[in-house]
Design a protein around this nucleic acid. Structure first.
Length: 288
DNA sequence: CTTGGGTCCTGTGCGC
DNA sequence: TGCGCACAGGACCCAA
């Protein structure tokens, strides 16, 4: 389940195959994912040239020369894999990583260019696609309510302090709320809160302003580091060429229940609790 | 308005 | 080996 760093990794990996490419054909193998695909999606994509590959939060954006943008969300298990059709025969890129955990019956949409094949595979089908006018993207229902990009300038101290003010919800939930900041998910919230020394159960509105402000650069750093590592590969995430991201080796708390807290001088152990149905990992000693 | 819980779907790994 | 259960990177929707 991709969070912002994984989606950004996929975006960068798709660029060599799709940036500037013409979609010769798109195979749509089922009528829907989480929601029905837009009307005549395959027809509206066929022949279009991709002018640029963008990203907003966890959404991939394929800006087309038709004036429309294909919005793609990977949901929990969505993958995008590139095959280079001009590669020498033999083992083609994109073959080896289909061995483990790859279920070809979940190849739901396949994009064909003159040189590449890009396959969208999503076992759980929580993903989504939609087509929308490029000049009106900010009004799309999935995008309109998103908060600031955490790596952009509008995500700053003043914004986060104002967003937390008066909120009685646990800070874990607040950071997962895409209206407050857009792009964090279950992994990077746990990682950021550990770095900030804030307990996930603490109520967002009861955290002193300087500690909230400190979260801003911490969130940026965590996401930056993860992007530079090619994201975190747990079950599903691969880079578009099939190689694994490696940020999971840098996790300080996520999925590390019972391990010692990595904070220097801290003798705590990582604990796991469930908040609104999702695991939170934290150190009860140095996170308060 | 905020907040919490249920829900969608398939695959995997664990304990028995 | 098989079975049942818990859990998995998301986020919408609705009730209270």
């Amino acid at each position: 389940m991709p969070e912002l760093p994984e989606v950004e990794t996929v975006r960068r990996g798709l660029a060599p195959a799709l940036d500037g490419a013409r979609l010769a054909r798109v195979d749509v193998n089922r009528p829907d994912l989480r929601w029905p695909f837009p009307d005549r999606m395959a027809d509206r994509l066929r022949g279009a040239t991709i002018r640029a590959l963008g990203r907003r939060s966890k959404f991939l954006l394929l800006h087309l020369d038709t004036g429309e943008t294909l919005i793609v969300h990977l949901g929990m298990s969505g993958r995008m894999v590139v095959d280079d059709l001009s590669a020498p025969t033999g083992v083609q890129p994109g073959t080896f990583h289909r061995d483990a955990g790859w279920h070809p019956q979940h190849d739901h949409v396949v994009f064909h260019t003159d040189r590449h094949r890009v396959t969208f595979n999503d076992a759980r089908r929580f993903g989504a696609m939609d087509l929308w006018p490029t000049d009106d993207l900010e009004n799309h229902r999935l995008i309109a309510k998103l908060g600031p990009e955490p790596l952009g300038n509008t995500f700053n101290d003043a914004h986060l302090i104002a967003a937390f003010r008066g909120r009685n919800t646990p800070v874990k939930s607040a950071l997962l709320d895409q209206r407050i900041v857009a792009g964090l998910g279950n992994i990077y919230v746990s990682e950021a809160l550990h770095r900030a020394g804030i307990a996930p159960k603490r109520r967002a509105g009861r955290i002193a302003a300087p500690r909230v402000a400190a979260l801003v650069p911490i969130i940026r750093d965590v996401l930056d580091e993860a992007i530079r590592a090619g994201g975190s590969s747990l079950r599903d995430h691969r880079q578009a060429d099939g190689t694994l991201g490696y940020f999971q080796h840098s996790f300080r708390v996520y999925d590390r229940e019972g391990r010692p807290c990595p904070t220097p001088g801290c003798d705590g152990a990582i604990r796991r609790i469930v908040q609104s149905g999702r695991s939170s990992f934290f150190c009860g000693v140095c996170q308060r």
